[in-house]
Simulated scan of single mutants.
Amino acid sequence: MKNYLRNIQHTQSGNFFLMAGPCAIEGEEIALRIAERITEITDRLQIPYIFKGSYRKANRSKGSSFTGIGDEKALKILEKVGKTFGVPTVTDIHEQQEAAMAAAYVDVLQIPAFLCRQTDLLVAAAETGKVVNVKKGQFLSAGSMKFAVEKIKDAGNDHVILTDRGNTFGYQDLIVDYRGLPEMQGFGVPVVMDCTHSLQQPNQSSGVTGGKPELIGTIAKAAIAVGADGLFIETHPDPANAKSDGANMLHLNRLEELLEKLIRIRQAIQ
């Protein structure tokens, strides 16, 4: 896995890499269905692929919101996806003690944006030896993410990814500052653009986060044009009925066409 990520910017095709999947693990059948389709697409397009799925959703507006199907059950599904399709997997962790538990099943540990300054969490993730993907906090500058990288490397782990997911813009919107991508690349790590969460509209009065999924392509195309190493896209065959963050997800049927366009942009700037 470490070699895989070390070479993700240097594939034969010269493509960006993709972290994609459902927001949350809802069940085995749908996880395998999504992974199979994305694997088919990325294999054909020669895009290095990492399957994404949260085994548990800890950051929810309402107490009644879906949080998961059970930690061990969801983690075993992630493990099965990885073994079935031969792809790396990534999931987010929320507390220090979760790092070792999740690391037993997945290849990449993701630090949620709201937790990117939590030193104990970053160190625990680093000490597993797994690749650590840190989401940039909506409240932080790109430059301040160098400290997250330093914490992980100081703990003995050089395998770090940084992911931008937009900046807080008022109380109920986010905006992407693309200057941050090359700035974070200056820290010597791969940088990813989260094309779905950056379109969230948080803090809605309903207690359910909104979004602007019609602009996913816009965010993705701009990120590739700027030179992002990878993209993060949450996708689902039925976003309207997804159990988590359906308002931000790309319909699975639209993924292939979007990736084809992005490859052409990547080729044009190389």
Rank of each mutant, 00 (worst) to 15 (best):
H94A: 10
H94M: 09
E95R: 11
Q97A: 14
E98R: 08
E98K: 04
A99Q: 06
A100S: 12
A102E: 11
A102N: 11
A104W: 01
V106N: 11
V108I: 13
V108G: 04
Q110I: 06
I111H: 00
I111N: 01
A113N: 07
A113I: 03
T119I: 12
D120T: 13
L122F: 07
L122K: 06
L122P: 07
L122T: 07
L122D: 08
A124P: 08
G129M: 05
K130I: 01
K130S: 07
V132K: 00
V132I: 11
N133H: 08
G137N: 03
G137W: 03
F139G: 05
L140E: 04
S141R: 06
S144Y: 07
S144D: 14
S144F: 07
M145N: 12
K146A: 10
F147Q: 07
V149Y: 05
V149W: 04
V149P: 05
E150P: 00
I152A: 03
K153Q: 15
K153V: 09
D154K: 12
A155Q: 04
G156C: 05
I161H: 01
T163D: 11
G166C: 05
N167H: 08
N167L: 14
F169N: 12
F169H: 13
F169S: 12
F169G: 13
G170F: 13
G170S: 13
G170N: 13
Y171L: 14
D177Y: 10
Y178T: 08
P182K: 06
P182F: 08
E183A: 13
E183Y: 03
M184F: 09
G186T: 10
G186Q: 12
F187D: 08
V189S: 01
P190L: 09
